[in-house]
Every structure is written in C-alpha cells, then in structure tokens.
C-alpha cells in the first residue's frame, strides 16, 4: 500500500505537470503527428516501388513506425523529467518522502505510459481520419498497443537509468541519441527486403526491425514472429528495468 502511494503520487505529479503545462505535453504529442504527416503524406508513392508489399497501404505502414517511435520517445521524454528533477533538487524531496524508493522509478514509468496513451490515442484518431486501413482484428490491435507499451517502458527505463546516473539534463543527448539511432537504423520507409547496403546489414540485426515487422503484421492481420517479438520486448524491458534500478542505487550512493 505504501509503495503504491509512492507510485501513484509520483505519477500524479508528473502527469499533472504535463497536462497543465502545454510546453511539456505538446512536443510529445505534436512530433509524432508531424512525423506521421511528413512520412505518410510525403512518401506515399514509395509504396509503388516494385517489391513493396503491404496491403493496408503506406499510411498504415508508417503509422506503426510512428506509434512505436512515439512510445519510445514518450519514455525518453519522461527520462528528461527525471533528470530535471534530480538536477533541480526536487528528487531529494521524493527520496526523502518515499519509504520505498523503487516506487519513485515506477511512478515515473506510469506517467510515461499515461503520456504515451494520450499521444497514441490522438495519433490513432488522426490516422483513421486520413483513411488508414486496418486489416487485423481486435486481438491484433491489442497486440500492437501492448507491444508499443513495452517499447514505451524500454524507452523510459533506459532514459531513467541514464538520468539517475548523471542527474543532469545535459545527459539528454545520451538518453535520446541511441534511441533515435536504433529507431532510424530500421526499415522506416520501406520493408527490410527493399533496403540495401550498410543500412540493410544494420537493420537486419536491429531488434526494432523485429518489433516493427510484428507491429506492421498486426495492422495487416498477419503478424509474424509474435511470441519472439514479445519475448524480445520483455527481455529488453527487464534489462532496462534493472538498469534503471541500478541507476537509482547509484543516485542514492551519490546523495542524489
């Protein structure tokens, strides 16, 4: 009960800040929408390239990428908030008040999920309004959003681990850049089979490629390697969860 109080308290405060201060929430909401518009709108002809085979169309193809991207960056942006709290000293208040400090890390995670949920809802509405076709059924849709949720946790736990080790917002590029690279060194615009050269080599071993293929498969109603993708997302989630808790220990040892 006491731990839940900490989780809910931290999540409430982080979400309240985001919901009452447009400068915090708007970038996380508008950037994915913008990417969706720029990619799905500007590059729609790419689906006519020989070998491009995705029946629901290019809008749905890009929607899945942007949904996962928004999930990952929703987590990373929450990590920025963690870093700011440590830099500004507010984290000390949380560390002092929380009987169980692991609840602080989980509270931010819940807030990250809340932020992403808002963005995902908006993105989905816009995608459906511009005519996105969905081939999959309800189970596929649940699968897609669950997968994105796991990506959100991965992004958050990764960034929180960095934030609590460095305890300054100057570590933002360190939180952001690897996520950006992992996301973009994947089949963003075309399927893996149409990539060439070094990008194909990198994308073939990039775990995001695997998740993207499953996610796009959910929308098409024919998801490949579902168990593998969830196992991979869960494994990374656990790994980064440990990473973030070690980060908390490091912050505690340093006196926050």
């Amino acid at each position: 009960m006491r731990r839940w109080n900490v989780v809910s308290g931290v999540a409430w405060r982080t979400l309240k800040n985001a919901l009452t201060n447009p400068q915090i929430l708007l970038p996380t909401m508008l950037f994915p929408l913008f990417f969706f518009t720029a990619f799905a709108g500007g590059l729609s002809q790419v689906s006519k390239v020989p070998g491009f085979d995705f029946p629901p169309g290019y809008t749905a193809f890009q929607f899945v990428f942007v949904l996962l991207q928004a999930a990952a960056f929703g987590g990373v942006f929450t990590g920025f908030g963690v870093a700011r709290d440590f830099e500004g000293g507010f984290a000390k208040r949380l560390l002092l008040a929380a009987p169980h400090r692991s609840g602080i890390v989980l509270g931010y995670a819940l807030a990250a999920l809340g932020r992403w949920a808002i963005t995902a809802a908006l993105l989905t509405v816009v995608a459906l309004l511009v005519g996105m076709e969905v081939g999959g059924g309800a189970v596929d849709v649940v699968g897609l959003y669950t997968l994105a949720m796991l990506v959100n946790f991965c992004g958050y736990f990764w960034a929180a681990g960095i934030a609590m080790r460095f305890r300054t917002i100057q570590a933002a590029p360190l939180m952001q850049m690897p996520v950006f690279l992992v996301l973009f060194f994947a089949p963003v615009y075309v399927p893996l089979s149409l990539l060439e050269g070094w990008l194909r080599t990198v994308a073939s071993v990039n775990p995001i490629t695997y998740l993207l293929e499953t996610g796009r498969g959910f929308v098409a109603g024919d998801a490949p390697h579902v168990l593998g993708a969830f196992a991979l997302a869960l494994a990374f989630g656990c790994l980064f969860w440990l990473w973030s808790f070690r980060g908390l220990r490091s912050a505690e040892a340093a006196g926050a």
Binding site: L43, Q45, V46, V49, G51, F185, Y189, L195, E196, L199
Partner: peptide, 14 residues
C-alpha cells in the same frame, strides 16, 4: 542524410 539515403534508395526505382 545517411538514414534517408539508405532507407529511401528504393524510391529511385519509381
């Protein structure tokens, strides 16, 4: 540039 050049090379076939 690197990401787009790799990812969008296929569009030159349009």
């Amino acid at each position: 540039l690197a990401v787009n050049a790799g990812g969008l090379r296929a569009s030159t076939e349009l």
